[in-house]
Amino acid sequence: MLTNRSKVVVDKKMTFSERIYLPAIIGGLFITIKHFFKKKATIDYPKVTREMSGVYRGQHVLKVDENGAERCVACGLCAVACPAEAITMTGAERKPGEEKLYREEKYAAVYEINMLRCIYCGLCEDACPKEAIFLTDRLVEVSSNRDDMIFGKDKLKEKYFNEVDITKRLTKEVIEFKKDKFHLHNQMD
């Protein structure tokens, strides 16, 4: 027996009260009227939005630093970490005069995440040594076209002076965790 809830079927004769249906019907009516006055579970979506968890993993953001320069160095660790293989990138070398745009000598010329492949696990965020990529509590805008769902830097990179708040995901513990790439759990054998 797999569960303790299974009932043995018996082909017993119905009693009189069962045969006249009425008690069962009245019982059913009480059940439905109870539901009639219950609080409804529906959320009137476009007008009312549901409260989201602070650490919700939604659309990604490519962070810029305090001067507005891209943090990403195109190391490819996020792409390696990604279990869904949703991230692709092409690195390029920074030319003289581009210091304001890119923080370090190397940057991602192309950085694409296929939002249809992504499983929003957040491993890219864990893997990033430069605190450049984070998942945010923004929902991904839908499209009727598969090509539109491959997000490039135009959609992923945050705007300078209009930064996306990621303080809830970049907590003290996370910073501590990221400081040392030889993590505790890696050291234990």
């Binding site: 439905t32 009227i33 539901h35 009639f36 219950k38 409804k40 529906t42 009137d44």
Partner: peptide, 13 residues
């Protein structure tokens, strides 16, 4: 509306 309320929904609104 009655159908919706009995089924824990809101109905036309």
């Amino acid at each position: 509306k009655v159908a919706a309320f009995i089924q824990d929904r809101i109905g036309p609104n």
